[in-house]
């Protein structure tokens, strides 16, 4: 992925604060933010909200062959997390006992560096999650 500075800046609210959308018509939360509610389309009323910082793992994997920018991290855990408002997010799981990384485990958001600087020199930061006891 090409992490140019403008792209990185545009994504600050989502990556730093886990900001997404909430549709006041159908009461569904979405992450990341979107312009149109897929349920209600033009009848939808989307507002920007900060997502809850906790959720649970609904699937996970341990990545052994990393893409560019993640060599120092590998092997690392990735998971799909269902947040408390029902929105889902893919994230790394860090600072956790591997035994406790399983489907159903409760997790909370932490703030970390994401990848090693690429050819654009941008250092990217954002959310990761850790298992809570």
């Amino acid at each position: 992925m090409q992490n140019t500075a403008p792209l990185n800046w545009r994504r600050f609210p989502e990556r730093y604060l886990l900001r997404g959308s909430y549709c006041e018509t159908c009461k569904q939360a979405f992450f990341p933010s979107r312009a149109i509610c897929p349920n209600c389309r033009r009848k939808g009323k989307l507002i920007s909200i900060e997502m809850p910082r906790t959720g649970k793992i609904i699937s996970y994997t341990r990545v052994h062959v990393p893409p560019e920018g993640f060599k120092n991290e590998a092997p690392y855990y990735l998971a799909i997390i269902e947040l408390e408002n029902g929105a889902k997010v893919l994230s790394q799981i860090v600072d956790s006992d591997p035994e406790k990384i399983k489907i159903g485990a409760k997790v909370k958001k932490v703030f970390r560096r994401i990848a090693e600087p690429d050819e654009y020199g941008t250092i990217t930061y954002g959310y990761k999650f850790k298992v809570v006891e």
Binding site: M1, N3, L7, R11, P32, T61, V63, V65, P66, P67, G69, F70, E73, Y76, L78, L90, S91, Q92, I114, A115, T124, G126
Partner: peptide
């Protein structure tokens, strides 16, 4: 922007 950014690959 949403998934590959976080270290996802197709196998993963």
């Amino acid at each position: 922007e949403i998934e590959l950014f976080h270290g996802a690959t197709f196998p993963s």
